[in-house]
Simulated assay, not measured.
Amino acid sequence: MQRNPYNKNKQEAFQAAQQGFENAQGLYETIVSDSANYGHQLKHLKDEVNEAYQQIENALEVASETQRPQLEQFQRDLQNIVQEVNLEE
């Protein structure tokens, strides 16, 4: 039986969004503990966050009902990161 490519795309989109979120979150945690390169790392974080947002948006377009709440949580968590960083500037 051949797998439905639509379901495969959903899973790949979700995994890309999850990976993008985890990259941004990991970088945020690094920045907080390393102030020496703060300015440079802040720009890198903004790029990662923007990329993660895009991946999440793409995944939401094809997401299953079970994936949607997790993707929306990723968006909220990214928004929290953005707000935390903006407070520190």
Rank of each mutant, 00 (worst) to 15 (best):
E61G: 01
I56M: 07
N9R: 15
E51S: 11
Q25I: 09
E51W: 02
N37M: 03
N7Y: 12
F14P: 01
A36Y: 06
Q75F: 12
E29T: 08
T30H: 12
P5Y: 10
Q67S: 03
L60E: 13
Q15M: 09
L87N: 10
S33E: 08
M1H: 13
R3Y: 11
Y38N: 08
D34N: 10
L45P: 02
L87S: 14
G39T: 14
S33C: 00
A16V: 08
E57R: 11
E48D: 04
L27H: 14
S35N: 09
N23P: 03
E61M: 01
L42Y: 14
V82R: 12
M1P: 07
V49N: 08
Q83A: 08
Q73I: 06
N37S: 10
E22N: 11
E22V: 13
L71N: 04
A13W: 10
R3V: 12
S35A: 14
N37Q: 05
Q19V: 03
Q15I: 07
Q55T: 13
K8V: 15
V85M: 15
N7P: 00
Q70F: 09
E65A: 08
R76Q: 12
V85Q: 07
L71M: 03
E22A: 12
L27W: 15
K46Q: 13
H40N: 06
R68N: 04
S64V: 09
I81K: 01
D34K: 10
P5L: 13
T66H: 05
S35W: 14
A16K: 11
Y38T: 14
E12K: 10
L78S: 08
Q2N: 01
V49R: 05
A63N: 04
E61F: 00
I81E: 00
V62Q: 07
P69I: 01
P5R: 08
L45K: 07
Y6R: 13
F14E: 02
Y53C: 10
Q18I: 00
A17K: 03
Q83F: 03
